[in-house]
Write a protein that binds this DNA or RNA. Structure first.
Length: 120
DNA sequence: CTCCTGACCCTTC
DNA sequence: CGAAGGGCCAGGA
């Protein structure tokens, strides 16, 4: 037995939080991609729930997560939308009409590095 | 158990 | 480009 190597199992939600925390400043990633990176393909909606439920104490960069169309997913006339837009702009991301150029700002993590960063 | 709701995504028109 | 429809699946009522 090797008790010191037994790591506590990471729940799907914790995996998502872990990935989101890795998105660098000035970059964005889509809900769907986050799901893929977390080993949960096709679960974009689950990612949105995970972000909503994330405790503030984690201080996750939730504003760096947008939809696959490169747009902020909150309705344009809401406070969350305004907040997300200003947070992105404050770190140099251009937002026009709630839209972000994925070709310019999408986070493309090195998969090997990503895997190694996961606490098994 | 069923029904409804999403910080979604993809295809089609 | 935008809108519509279907798929998806965890949570809550």
């Amino acid at each position: 037995m090797t008790p010191e190597t037994s790591a506590p199992p990471l729940s799907p939600m914790q995996k998502i939080w872990h990935i989101v925390a890795l998105i660098p400043e000035g970059r964005v990633a889509s809900y769907g991609k986050i799901a893929d990176y977390a080993g949960l393909p096709g679960r974009a909606r689950y990612v949105s729930r995970a972000l909503k439920q994330a405790p503030d104490s984690l201080a996750l960069p939730w504003h760096r997560v947008i939809n696959s169309q490169g747009k902020i997913s909150f309705a344009k006339d809401t406070h969350p939308f305004q907040l997300q837009m200003s947070l992105l702009r404050s770190e140099g991301v251009q937002v026009n009409q709630g839209r972000i150029a994925l070709s310019e700002y999408e986070w493309r993590p090195d998969m090997a590095t990503l895997v190694l960063s996961m606490p098994f």
